[in-house]
Simulated assay, not measured.
Amino acid sequence: MGRERQQSHDTGKVDTTCVVFAAGTYFNERPSIPHDAFVVAADGGLDHARALGIRADAVIGDFDSISGPVPEQSGTIRLPEEKDDPDLLSALKVGWVKGARIFHIYGALGGRVDHSIANIQILARLAAHGGIGYLFGDGTVVTAICDGSLAFTADAATRGAGRMISVFSHSDQSTDVTERGLKYQLEHATMLNDTVQGVSNEFLTATPALVSVGKGTLVVTFPIEAGLPHVERLHAFSGNLGALSTAVSAALATPRRSA
C-alpha cells in the first residue's frame, strides 16, 4: 500500500519506517508492514499485533488495557499510569530514537473522539520536526505536513477518484496553501484554524494531485485507495520528539486530599 519507504528530500537518504499498533479500533483492516520496518506496540496495541501474528520489536505502555501477559523481552518499556505523555507519543519517541521519520499508525482512529483528536495533534508534532505520520482507519488516512507538500500520482488519484480529500489548518494561520489536480483548486491561499475552507474536495481521474503549504501545518485526510503521497519539504527541520517522559507536569499535578 503506497510507498514502503520514503526518500528524504532534504538529505537524499531513505528514512526508516516505524509501524505502531495502538489500542483503538482496527475496522477489520489488516495492517501492511513495510520491509525492514521497526514495529512498536503501544499498550493494548500489543493484543492486536498478537492477533495478527506480528511480533513487535518494542512494547511500551502502562499496560492498563492489555489482555495478555506483558512480554519479558529487552524491548519492553513499562510506564507509570500517571504521566503527561500518552502511550502513542511514547511509542513514537521510541521509533524516532531508532531512526524512524515515517510512522504508520494503526488503531488510533475511531472509538473515543478525545483519543482521535489527541492522535491528530501528535501528527502535527511529528510534522513540526520533519517527520510524517499516517493514521489508518475505516478506509481513511489522516496525516499532517509542515512547510512542504504531498503529491499524489495520477494513478494513485485515479484509485481514489471521486473520493474525498480534506485539508485543514492546524496552525493558527497557514500561508501559501495550494491544492492542485482536485475538483476545487486553491492557489497560494491563507487558511485559518477556526475557518473551514478545505473540507470535502475530490480526486479527479488520471490527474496528479498536490497539496502544499509554504508556512504552517496542515492536517490532510484522504482515502486509503489513493496510497501514500510523495513528501517534500521546503527546508531542513531540527529538534526531536523529546526524551521518554514519566513525569506529571506541575501545571497538571493537583494536591491529594487527605482522608
Rank of each mutant, 00 (worst) to 15 (best):
G2N: 07
R3V: 02
E4Q: 04
R5H: 15
S8N: 13
D10C: 12
T17D: 12
F21S: 01
F21Y: 01
G24K: 04
T25L: 11
Y26A: 08
E29L: 05
I33M: 03
D36Y: 13
F38M: 05
V40M: 10
D47P: 10
A49D: 01
A49L: 06
R50H: 09
A56C: 04
G61E: 07
D62K: 06
D62R: 00
D62A: 02
F63H: 03
S65E: 08
P69C: 11
Q73G: 04
Q73T: 12
S74H: 14
R78N: 12
L79K: 14
L79N: 15
P80A: 03
D87K: 05
A91E: 00
L92Q: 03
V94Q: 00
V94R: 01
G95D: 09
G95A: 13
W96E: 14
V97E: 15
K98I: 00
K98N: 12
G99V: 03
G99S: 05
F103T: 05
H104C: 09
I105Y: 01
Y106H: 13
R112K: 00
R112T: 12
R112S: 15
V113Y: 11
D114A: 07
S116C: 12
A118F: 04
N119L: 01
N119A: 07
N119C: 09
I122V: 07
A127H: 07
A128L: 08
H129N: 13
I132T: 06
L135M: 04
V142G: 07
T143A: 04
C146W: 01
C146H: 11
S149Q: 08
A151D: 11
A151G: 11
F152C: 02
D155Q: 08
A156K: 01
A157L: 12
A161P: 06
R163N: 08
M164F: 15
I165L: 15
V167E: 03
V167M: 02
S169M: 03
D172K: 15
S174D: 04
E179S: 13
K183G: 11
L186W: 04
L192V: 11
D194G: 05
S200Q: 04
E202L: 09
L204N: 03
A206K: 15
T207P: 02
V213C: 06
K215P: 00
L218M: 13
T221S: 13
F222P: 00
F222A: 00
E225P: 05
A226Q: 01
P229F: 06
R233V: 11
A236M: 06
F237I: 14
N240H: 09
G242N: 06
L244K: 06
S245N: 07
S245F: 10
A247G: 11
V248H: 05
V248S: 01
A251K: 02
P255C: 14
S258F: 11
S258P: 02
